[in-house]
């Protein structure tokens, strides 16, 4: 009754988009990584030349270092803080829905809006510096946006601030699945709230924590907007805060874009993100085996 091609008609729009704008570019990226193609086209097979160039390219190592530091800097706070906030908004108290909604607001704002808001707050004459000075904690403005290392840390804080609400919701969903009788049993045994948190809640939430770590690690390694906006597009003093994605964008776009080299950089990005996902799967599988 159903014609053989009917299912394919259903699939056509979706498959067309995913194949044309995701899978074809992906294969194309792998091919281009072994060529000297430029933005103008052309390009010849050059073997591993792009990867050899990478090893000698200080910009690549700086970008790889920054993206890795970013990952290391944002993952622990994003695993811990949203869990604490979720515990805080978990109980049904008057007005708790308002707090949950408010805590989620930074998630819906675009990275650009968030980046501009914090650029203004962290300006040498901005609110944060004014408050720090009024409190007498600093005598000169803190160079949040102009110092190489402080800029990176500031961008991390923005990422953490923007991610709190998102991971809070994930933890709230997971907390709903922690069996209540475990808590009660622990309470009967005389365990206080802190003890119950580490003995009952944390073990039950381990798979969720691994998931949050994986999501925030992949997103952290892919950082672009926060550093771009806080540095006004420059990537920090002398480009010292450029991330890997920023380097890909700078290398591969524009009239002088080096598409081949940018593709080789993209392959590094892909291998790292895929590796992070595989590690997560591994960790969660071991979890289930126990």
């Amino acid at each position: 009754m159903t014609r053989w091609y009917t299912p394919w008609l259903f699939l056509l729009p979706g498959l067309a988009v995913v194949v044309t704008f995701s899978l074809v570019p992906f294969v194309n990226m792998i091919v281009l990584a072994f060529t000297d193609a430029t933005a103008l086209g052309g390009g010849h097979f050059t073997g591993l030349a792009n990867f050899q160039r990478m090893l000698d390219d200080p910009k690549f190592w700086v970008a790889l270092r920054n993206s890795t530091l970013y990952l290391v800097g944002v993952v622990p706070p994003l695993v811990v803080l949203p869990l604490l906030i979720a515990l805080l908004v978990r109980k049904k108290l008057p007005g708790i829905t308002f707090f949950r909604t408010a805590f989620f607001t930074p998630v819906i704002a675009s990275a650009v809006v968030v980046g501009l808001i914090w650029t203004w707050l962290l300006d040498s004459q901005g609110l944060v510096n004014n408050v720090l000075r009024a409190l007498g904690w600093v005598s000169r403005p803190v160079p949040f946006l102009t110092d190489e290392w402080l800029l990176l840390v500031s961008a991390m804080l923005v990422t953490i601030w923007k991610g709190l609400g998102y991971y809070m919701i994930i933890y709230l969903a997971a907390l709903g699945n922690v069996p209540a009788d475990l808590h009660e049993a622990a309470q009967v045994d005389g365990a206080g709230p802190v003890r119950r948190f580490f003995a009952v809640t944390v073990p039950a939430l381990r798979p969720t924590m691994v998931l949050v770590a994986a999501l925030s690690a992949v997103n952290g390694f892919r950082v672009f907007s926060e550093i771009y906006l806080l540095s006004g597009g420059s990537g920090g003093p002398g480009g010292a805060d450029t991330s890997l994605v920023m380097l890909i964008q700078q290398t591969g776009t524009g009239l002088t874009g080096n598409v081949g080299y940018a593709s080789a950089l993209s392959m590094v990005l892909f291998v790292v993100t895929l590796g992070l996902l595989l590690v997560t799967l591994r960790l969660n599988r071991r979890e289930e085996a126990l």
Binding site: V18, T20, P25
Partner: peptide, 26 residues
């Protein structure tokens, strides 16, 4: 059907930033 499901699943695994430059060329 399984092939089609696989295409969508692999679409999820490719981060957008990885195909950025190549997508621009497409």
């Amino acid at each position: 059907r399984r092939l089609a499901a696989l295409v969508f699943a692999s679409g999820i695994l490719v981060p957008f930033e990885v195909i950025l430059i190549s997508l621009f060329l497409v």
